[in-house]
Nucleic acid binder design. Sequence first.
DNA 1: CGCGCATGTCATCTA
DNA 2: ATTAGATGACATGCG
Length: 814
Amino acid sequence: MLYLKKYLTEGLIQFTILLSLIGVRVDVDTYLSSQLPPLREIILGPSSAYTQTQFHNLRNTLDGYGLHHKSVDLDDYFTARRLLGEVRSLDRLQVPSTELSAWLVHRDAEGPVVSSPQSGSGDGSSGFALENASGGLEEVGNLEGSAMRGNGSLDQGYLQELEENLGAVAPEDSSELHNDSSSNNLTKEDIDLIDILWRQDIDLGAGREVFDYSSRQKEEEEEEEEKKKQSEEEEEEEEEEPTGDSWRNGLNQRGEGPVDGETGECIPQQLPTLVDRTSLSLQECLRLLEATFPFVEETEFPGSVFPVLEDSSEEDPFTSSSQGPLLSPLLPETDSPLDREQQWQDIMAIMDLQDMEVNEAADPSFNTSSASSSSGVDTGSLANFSLSAHTPINQDVSLHQASLPSCSQDFPGGFFNPELGSCPMEAVGASPPAALLCLSSGNSSDVNSTFGATNLTDVLLPPRLNGSSNGTELPDPLTGLLEEALLDEISLLDLALVEGFNPAQASRLREEFDSDSGLSLDSSQSPASPSGSETSSSSSSSSSSSSSSSFSEEGAVGYSTDSEAVDFEEGGAVGGCYQPEFSKFCRMSYRDPSRFSHLPQLEHVAHNHTYNLAPSPTDQSPAPGGVGKKGAGREKQQLQQDFLDKQQSRDERRARAMKIPFSNEKIVHLPVEEFNELLSKHRLSEAQLTLVRDIRRRGKNKMAAQNCRKRKLDTILNLEQGVEALRRDKARLLREKVEFVRSLRQMKQKMQSLHQEVFSRLRDESGRPYPAGEFSLQYGSDGSVLLMPRRLRDEQQQQQQPSRKPEKKQKDKK
DNA sequence: CGCGCATGTCATCTA
DNA sequence: ATTAGATGACATGCG
């Protein structure tokens, strides 16, 4: 449990902060309430991910005014607020809400697909399940378990076959699929372009709403379907023909511009991209699926992705699979911490990815700082995308998002369905075409036909992004930026984030571990390091500052005038051997040389800049003891007097001239009551009283001015520190983002390949492949896989919309 | 002599 | 109303 808590806390908080930094309101409940109810309580603990929310609450409710302007909290508050603002200003990102859709099918070694579309039933539960040989829907279970079952399950041989064919078969299929549209042959270059487009599809990350989905209803529906299946099987078979017609009808409609089931808007026709650059094994891919499914809200198989399938169905491009596969659960229901960790990593990667390319395209600093590397990931793909816009073959390549509100396109790329928000709208406006092109990377011929074959990359992307390419190898874009020093900082920052995103703590930790920060921050941090000399100097203020956080609190509150030092020079009052420097040192404890010895500009801070006032009559009056002296004695005394005059401040000399019977230190530092008592004890003339009060006033003000200046200095230093910290944080975040992008890219490639492969092996009873444009694989929460007509699925989704929230609440209670 | 810096001082505001 | 503290502005001394 502790492990889980730690991991979730860290991961979720980082993730939350990442989102928050880029302006996305983070609602952790949305993620966790339905899927991981226990984790919610965990995260809502002291180290809550809501820390930032609390911070916002602080800003909203108090807005800083509730804090005393001298308090440390205020400094922390402003510091945190400033830092947060700077961080937010680093990248102007818009993270789209994307969807994550995943599919997994179970192939039956025997026979054709048992189930068939359940259209026109009128009961709404029209999706039909693909039964395995044993009949009935099969729960998503352990992958190996399913495989070993042999009959009705995916056997190992098939798994291996899939795995082996992932790299080769898929591109083949893609080429065949593309044949129908425009190009017959996929050259290597074309495949590269497709791959590039795939990479560009990276930013089509999954949205949070994906994880909101409660598929319990689908479970019930599946069960209901299972019950109905036996009775309606015959009827379904009868309806299969019209359903098949409906496919064609739908495709015909699609030819005119298919209508999105939800939005009713035209759906640009998409062609599939079947490029596989798998480096992961099929098992890994399946694990990934398994990790993803618990959060899959909407399983959607690309409908218009395979428009070609309908026409080419007779050709049966999927010759590799002669057997009629059945959908069946492949996902193991492992719940090990590792799997859960995998899930979180996947989710975080997906979510964080959303703004990746947008950021890269919009953030000049990013591109400049990591010109060669960052572009290697996405810029390269973008550059190739520009090529693809001119290449006919690329028009057949579909990289799209299934859930685009206006132009939803169904395609395996819809695994990660970003919404329009991920597109840098400011570049081309918020028009859906632009967004579509931005997100789907100019994927289909429809896109080009609809919006012209203009090279949109010129519009959407900075020019330099179009320069580099290759897209094959993806060097770390931030290797130049992120140096080894950042590694340590990452952990520190993460720790700070977990602890509540306290910039002060983060920076403090950072300073503790990062000695060579290169900043002149030593002044603010030095109180802690040379504490030995400091504590010995009876400097209460400095000690207090050293114990507190590093952010300017010492400047705010740490300059307490050590009244205990008042008595220090008592007795040496007027005309005595009073040492102004020493008294000043004691008085202004923050002047501890150890603190400022690091600052060159403060090396001479201890200078005694006592003013030499224009000699007043009292000042020129000789000291009482030296009036009647003669010769060397008098001269000596005069020299001594001059020395004292130089050493003493104006007020001290004045006090000495006015024969004030107590030291200036007392005058200045005594509390009001004691000061008044002191005045009452001594019979002083009006002039003396005035002088004493002036001395007190000036003394107080002098200290106040010193404190004020110290605060200013600390503020400046802290600003420098904050800027540096933000730079590092930014670099770290960028690196993490790139890593997430990589991970997600691999995931998507694997997912698409797997899905493509599995779906291509599906055959209806007549041995024909199912047209992907008309059917979609849909997953239930229990792992069951349904082959469902897309129209019916859309209807179900619409019906299920209102009941989502109650379901989530129910799950929360569990 | 002018400049920059540190410091002191005053006036003013605020709590 | 008084006091203490904060702070901007200015003055002063020093290198």
